[in-house]
């Protein structure tokens, strides 16, 4: 594994790629985000704190984080399943199913919200079936979660799929030849290799879910303290021309997501390194 140490010197292109990355990142992402932070700093520290610790704001953070987390978990399981089925199995219509995965990206979020509400509202296609069972989907946190599952599913599938596709089957083969059960092979050999992309997919779906607005407002019902998501509160503040307060709520939301993403990226890199060492050893 000596190449790990000397790779810096061998390959070309670090200055240009890193330079361009940082420049573009700064122009498109960092400078505008700094503007947001500066705007929120127009409030005095006490005002700032009061804005972001207001019970309604806190309730909305909790709701956004929890629903995004649950949606991320569901997507983790079903995203892996979908990627697995699409890479490893053959069945009629596979191409079409593969293509459908991307559609949640292509559909404007507002349309997705309206369509989901049409289906899951008490008088909708599925909602009317669940209504007698006492399950309320639309206008409840469950509805928000479903909208976020819809928004997030491509993230998990599309990060796991390429890795699964490129995965060598040597190890699996060896395990099978040695008589290991299929399930054991999967959990011991395949799954560990998939942990980095799974983590990435989960993190992306989760982070996207925290901020999602367009699809959620239609299905959530927007009741304060119950189904009011944090991005809606930002809009609410803006409607009252309170730019600085809106920016403060946004900054906290941003910091939470940033922290989570950073944590997951470190975790992912760490597991990646462990994996590679294990493979090499």
């Amino acid at each position: 594994m000596t190449f790990l140490r000397k790779k810096d010197r061998v390959l070309p292109g670090l200055p240009i790629t890193l330079g361009f990355t940082v420049l573009y990142l700064s122009l498109i992402v960092l400078i505008p985000l700094v503007a947001l932070a500066i705007k929120s700093a127009e409030l005095s520290p006490a005002e700032w704190w009061n804005t972001v610790t207001n019970p309604r704001v806190v309730a909305s953070y909790k709701l956004s984080l929890l629903t995004a987390f649950y949606a991320g978990l569901v997507n983790l399981v079903f995203g892996l399943l979908l990627a697995w089925v699409l890479v490893r199995y053959k069945f009629p219509g596979k191409r079409i199913v593969d293509g459908l995965i991307d559609l949640p990206f292509a559909l404007p979020t507002a349309v997705a919200g309206i369509a989901l509400t049409t289906i899951y509202a008490p008088k909708g296609w599925v909602g009317s079936l669940l209504q007698p069972l006492g399950i309320k989907v639309a206008y409840s946190p469950l509805g928000i979660t479903i909208a976020l599952i819809f928004i997030g599913i491509p993230f998990v599938v599309r990060t796991v799929q390429p890795v699964l596709q490129d995965m060598e089957t040597d190890m699996e083969e060896a395990a099978a030849t040695l008589g290991a059960y299929r399930a054991r092979t999967f959990f011991r050999i395949v799954l560990p290799e998939l942990i980095p992309p799974l983590l990435t997919g989960f993190a992306l779906a989760f982070a996207r879910g925290i901020g999602e607005y367009g699809s959620v407002v239609f299905i959530s019902g927007n009741m304060p303290m119950k189904t009011e998501i944090a991005p809606l509160l930002i809009i609410t503040k803006l409607e009252q021309f309170q730019y600085a307060q809106a920016a403060a709520v946004a900054v906290v939301l941003l910091l939470i997501s940033f922290g989570l993403l950073l944590l997951i990226n470190i975790l992912q890199r760490w597991s990646n390194r462990r994996l590679r060492t294990a493979k090499g050893g």
């Binding site: 049409t118 509202a121 008088k123 206008y139 407002v217 239609f218 019902g221 927007n222 009741m223 304060p224």
Partner: peptide, 16 residues
């Protein structure tokens, strides 16, 4: 349901 705009409420009442 508290929609964000007047038209949204009308749709909730009429369409949904």
């Amino acid at each position: 349901v508290l929609d964000t705009g007047a038209r949204g409420s009308t749709t909730t009442f009429v369409e949904k």
